[in-house]
Computed example of a mutant assay.
Amino acid sequence: MSLVLFLLQTSGPVLLIALVTGLVSGGCSAGLIALISYSIAQETAGALVVAAFVGLGAIALSTAMVSRILLVQFSQAAVFELQLQLCRQILATELKALEALGLPRLLVVLTEDIQAIAAAASILPVLMINIAGTVGCMVYVSWLSWQVLALVLLITLLASLSCRWFLVAGRRGLAAARDNQERLFQHFRSLIEGIKELKLHYLGRQDFFAIDLQQTAHQVRHYNQTGLSLFAVLDSWGKFIYFFAVGLVLFALPNWIGISPNTRVAYVLTFTYLLGPMENLVNKLPLLGQASVALDKLETLGLTINQSVATSAPPPVQSWHQLALKG
């Protein structure tokens, strides 16, 4: 929620336009699926159907293009504003508090955390487009059969519950990698600032590399691999659930309720279209997980992306106007 509020504050108009055009594009895409299903069920397509297909396709493509262009501008503005916002807060923070935090922590915040949050910010409108298309498809499925919609919603609920463990475990791995990243930056700082001493002492140089830097880098790699691997398993598990739902509609559902072949074709087309938005959402979960970890780390350090613009302390008031040396 804090990320959404920050985006609305920094790039509200651009974000809203991108969201509106993205929602229109997603709705038109869902309309195209319904129109294609209707055309397959009919023997011939009339002029009105052809005109509707051309119109929906043109609107979907044009609004998607506008939304993508706005997203490029929006993502760059988000990175710019986020960097300045955190730098203002760091400048306004007391020196004692900054020394307690340490330079490596601040460097990780200004580099990796900002990039993680900016990456998540840039994909939020894209996810809104996918959500709009998914909702449109669900409306079409409910129009075909409310029983099938209820079945799809039940499968979605069970899938969400089964995927929660992968999400929590994957996020835990990314959080552990983020904690070790601060130690790695500390070793980078020691390497640069103490390069003369390390050059003069061979054994110390070897110990520093093997015991400190290499082991910390290995831990960062291990936790990142663990977290991202769990998200990859989640992707495969989501596809399995998708194919299970398609097979249920094709082979099992006709035995339970009367479904015509044309209606089954409409379901398959709709679910095939949904595979794209669903896969896109699952692929973006690691970015959202990293952004969530970065936001938690900012709060831990006493920083926030929604804090009012910080200002430096005012200069001391000078009550004298001239200085004279006597004697």
Results as ranks from 00 to 15, higher is better:
254 P>Y: 02
136 G>H: 06
129 I>Y: 04
71 L>Q: 05
323 L>H: 11
125 P>Y: 03
80 F>C: 06
99 E>M: 08
152 V>A: 15
13 P>W: 04
244 F>N: 10
114 I>L: 01
230 L>P: 05
305 I>N: 02
315 P>W: 07
94 E>T: 05
203 L>M: 12
222 H>I: 08
57 G>A: 14
209 F>C: 04
286 P>A: 07
69 I>T: 15
50 V>G: 13
249 V>F: 07
178 R>T: 00
45 A>D: 01
55 G>P: 04
309 V>E: 15
255 N>D: 06
294 A>T: 01
274 L>A: 03
43 E>A: 15
194 G>E: 11
249 V>L: 15
40 I>H: 13
70 L>D: 00
259 I>Q: 06
93 T>F: 00
201 H>I: 12
90 I>A: 01
265 V>P: 00
247 G>C: 15
214 Q>L: 14
154 L>Y: 07
168 V>S: 10
219 Q>G: 01
204 G>R: 12
36 I>W: 02
156 T>K: 01
228 L>D: 02
289 G>N: 07
304 T>G: 15
47 A>E: 15
131 I>C: 07
79 V>A: 15
71 L>E: 03
137 C>A: 14
14 V>M: 08
213 L>R: 00
168 V>M: 11
141 V>E: 06
264 R>H: 04
192 I>T: 14
73 Q>C: 09
245 A>G: 10
144 L>R: 15
31 G>T: 10
261 P>E: 12
42 Q>D: 15
263 T>C: 14
120 A>S: 03
131 I>F: 10
254 P>H: 03
305 I>R: 02
27 G>I: 00
257 I>K: 12
295 L>H: 06
140 Y>M: 11
13 P>D: 08
222 H>A: 11
182 E>V: 13
231 F>K: 04
150 A>E: 09
